[in-house]
Amino acid sequence: MKLLSLIRDRLLQLELLFAAASLLLLLVLAVAQIIARNAFDAGITQADTLTRYLVLYVTFFGATLAVDRNRHIKIDVACTLLSTRTQAHLYRPLRALAAVICMFFADASIRFWRDEWTYAQDYERWQVIVGLILPVGFVLLTIHFLLAALLGPDDDACRLP
């Protein structure tokens, strides 16, 4: 268990760094584009594409962080109607199930990515590499839900944002 929570904490640190870096890069690129367009009548065509991919990076790293902060949006009827004990019982099975669902998505995104790689035109290959975030993101989500299922809740499962 100690090892598992150590793994989780290291992963979370890394993901926080990646999330922060992606968001910061998104901001910097967006501002650079505005300056380039207005001051130099020039744009960086590839930068437009990259900024849009960065949204996916922020999304996936944010979503992995959200697992452990218990911040994923849910229809929380259970939180108002069920007793705290029932909710505690539900914590692990729900996360295990979410892990399974994410695993199927990870599988789907790996097959999607391989197809992209096979059919990419040469000038688009860098985008396919940037697009690795899709399989990586779902694998990370799977791992986090799995860890959450194994480690159990660390405090109130109904914590609100």
């Binding site: 999330a19 949204v55 922020v58 996936f60 790293f61 944010g62 979503a63 962080l65 902060r69 911040r71």
Partner: peptide
């Protein structure tokens, strides 16, 4: 990122 991720 957490806010954005949970929505998107």
């Amino acid at each position: 990122a957490v806010l954005v991720g949970s929505i998107l």
